[in-house]
Computed example of a mutant assay.
Amino acid sequence: MPTPLLTIADLAVSVPGPAGAWTAVAGIDFTLARGETLGLIGESGSGKTLTGLALLGLLPSGASATARRLTFDGHDLLRGEAVLAPLRGRRLGMIVQDPVGAFNPAKRIGWHMRAVLRRRGDRRPDAAARWLSEVGVRAADQVLAAYPHQLSGGMLQRVLIAMVGALEPDLIVADEPTTNLDAVVAQQILDLVRERQRRTGCAILFVTHDLPAARRLCDRVAVMVAGTIVEIGPADTVLDTPRHPYTRGLIATVRSLAARDTVLVEMAGEPGRPPTGGCPFLGRCPRADALCRSDPPRLSALRPDHLLRCHHPDA
């Protein structure tokens, strides 16, 4: 079996709060192979974005990450900037969920593209236009001459994908790349990401709450709730035959919306901080019992490629 490109063991992220620091993400374990796409799915606030930012050393001010192991192609990312700085922007790339915020509003698109290309040592005069054409931008010269506010969200996302593509990274963290885009543009963006992966063999960590998008793009999915992975396995297996009550509830709400039900299915409770003890889904789970309240379940194998964090997998 080939060595994974990315290995994460027991990742935890602590963030500041009014009453002091608290653990927003805990016990994250997964690997990611070259050419593979792993989706992190779950509600807003479940810790998906923090997990992606921790990998790149881009956590917000005051937040910190620890792990038993965090390696990328043999590099120990726990050693901090000394290791991360040469990798980030070359072998590690990120597509952020807000394309507008990714650009300097006072600089033209061409300036941004040239800055990325210089980092790769590509000084060809037509390099920027070539990379834009790779993502389906026809009037490349007009786009390069424009300021960010003069372009639509979909076009800015295309430019951002072109910039990340120009870096030719081995791992891309794609954080909600289709947020706030209409369905047609969102599908085009996903197709661009998939095509980029097909050409380069890069690995993708796809952060999303869009389950149909996860099904189209991902080989495997990891379901997060309250900062913890509660189910992980092949995308079709998890999305078609979910075993964790949270995964089942999440998929039921999506199916209810797709069917245009008069009364929409919803899960009890609200996303929030993980409980201090017991199951991370405690307080929202209809099957919770005394064992769930007293003993945090471990991530265990239903089969070699399908893991579950639940005391009652057969309920």
Rank of each mutant, 00 (worst) to 15 (best):
D29Q: 07
A252W: 09
A203I: 06
E231A: 07
T51E: 11
D191Y: 03
G277W: 08
T178K: 06
L217E: 03
I8P: 02
S61E: 15
L87Q: 11
T208R: 10
E195S: 02
G20C: 08
E176T: 04
M94H: 10
A258L: 04
L257R: 08
R123G: 03
V221D: 06
L291R: 09
S300I: 01
T51K: 00
P99E: 13
C202Y: 02
G42T: 08
A258G: 01
L38W: 12
Q97W: 06
G136T: 06
A140V: 11
P234W: 14
R118T: 01
I95S: 05
G39P: 10
V230S: 03
P297L: 05
P271N: 13
V100F: 14
P286T: 00
A315F: 07
A82D: 10
P2T: 05
R108H: 03
F281L: 13
L308P: 06
T3L: 06
M267P: 10
L84C: 13
R199S: 07
V135F: 12
A67E: 14
R220A: 14
A129S: 10
R293M: 15
E81P: 00
A166K: 02
L307C: 02
D305M: 07
V135W: 05
G42H: 13
P16M: 07
Q97A: 12
P4H: 07
E195N: 01
M163V: 05
V230P: 09
P99Y: 13
D29F: 02
V159K: 01
R138N: 09
W111G: 00
P60L: 08
R273D: 15
D182L: 12
A127P: 00
Q188M: 02
D219L: 09
A115M: 12
V238T: 09
A301E: 07
L70Y: 02
G17R: 08
R293S: 15
Q150G: 01
L70K: 02
R130H: 04
L217C: 04
F281Y: 14
G165W: 05
D210A: 07
L92P: 11
R309K: 07
T71M: 10
S44Q: 12
M113D: 05
L50Y: 13
S46V: 07
L32T: 10
S294M: 03
A140K: 10
V13S: 14
R68G: 15
V135D: 08
L144I: 06
A9V: 12
Q150C: 01
G17S: 13
D175G: 09
G17C: 07
P274A: 14
M163L: 14
E43T: 11
A166I: 03
R309A: 10
T37A: 10
I41S: 08
V265D: 01
D295P: 00
I251E: 03
E266D: 13
L59Y: 08
P148W: 00
V207S: 03
L11K: 02
I41L: 14
I204A: 04
S294R: 05
C292I: 08
A146S: 07
R284T: 14
R138K: 15
S44H: 12
A140N: 04
V263E: 02
P297V: 05
A26L: 11
V225F: 15
A129F: 07
T66C: 04
H149E: 05
I232A: 15
T51N: 04
R284D: 15
G154V: 12
T23N: 09
G154K: 06
T179Y: 06
M113P: 00
D126C: 10
D295L: 03
P86H: 00
R79K: 14
R108E: 02
L58A: 09
D210F: 08
